[in-house]
């Protein structure tokens, strides 16, 4: 589905990827692990097209739709939880269903600026699950959530992204285990 072919990427003198290759299948579950700064988020940004590699190529069908839970919430504080989701989708039923599944039914019409950190994370997850997508990127998506909420969120992710590729960046083996993701260690790729 997506092929990163002999990628070279550096931030100035700091080499992040050199001759790096990775194949992602249409229903792969990958867990990118490794120390901070090893290039996990950069890899996701390359896949999403937010960064361009200096050498090599990323081969993917342009019709493939991504969805993502960013490392930060990236929610508009002056909009409600539901409005933030409706900004990127037209499917209100699915948006409400996801909010409800993540325990945010009563917070749907609350301004994001009035939500707690954990609630904002769950809104960001609900948003990612409410758009049509072919692959889902979870960049430290569960930071700040307790174990019970992580389990609930992953259950919903597995329900919505049943036959879709999922790429997880996380330091938690529990999250990877619940998602059934195969580990790829960042350092080992370099």
């Amino acid at each position: 589905m997506i092929r990163l072919n002999n990628i070279f990427f550096s931030y100035g003198d700091k080499k992040v990827f050199d001759n790096f290759t990775l194949d992602i299948g249409s229903n792969d579950r990958l867990w990118l692990s490794g120390q901070s700064g090893c290039g996990k988020t950069t890899l996701l940004r390359l896949i999403l097209g937010l960064e361009t590699s200096q050498k090599g190529e990323i081969i993917k069908d342009i019709s493939l739709k991504p969805s993502v839970v960013f490392q930060e919430d990236r929610l508009l504080p002056f909009k409600t939880a539901l409005q933030n989701i409706m900004l990127v989708t037209n499917d209100e039923t699915l948006a409400k269903e996801n909010l409800e599944a993540l325990g945010l039914k009563t917070e749907a019409d609350t301004l994001v600026s009035e939500l707690s950190g954990g609630m904002k994370r769950r809104v960001a997850i609900a948003r990612a699950l409410s758009v049509p997508f072919d692959y889902l990127i979870l960049d430290e998506a569960f930071t700040g959530l307790d174990k019970q909420n992580i389990e609930i969120a992953i259950k919903q992710i597995l329900k919505i992204a049943k036959d879709k590729a999922i790429i997880l960046v996380s330091h938690s083996p529990l999250e990877a285990e619940l998602l059934g993701a195969k580990q790829i260690n960042c350092q080992a790729l370099l």
Binding site: K65, P66, V68, L87, V88
Partner: peptide, 12 residues
């Protein structure tokens, strides 16, 4: 830029 990237990624 994080906000505009969000819009971009979600195809707005």
């Amino acid at each position: 830029v994080k906000y505009t990237e969000m819009g971009q990624v979600f195809g707005l």
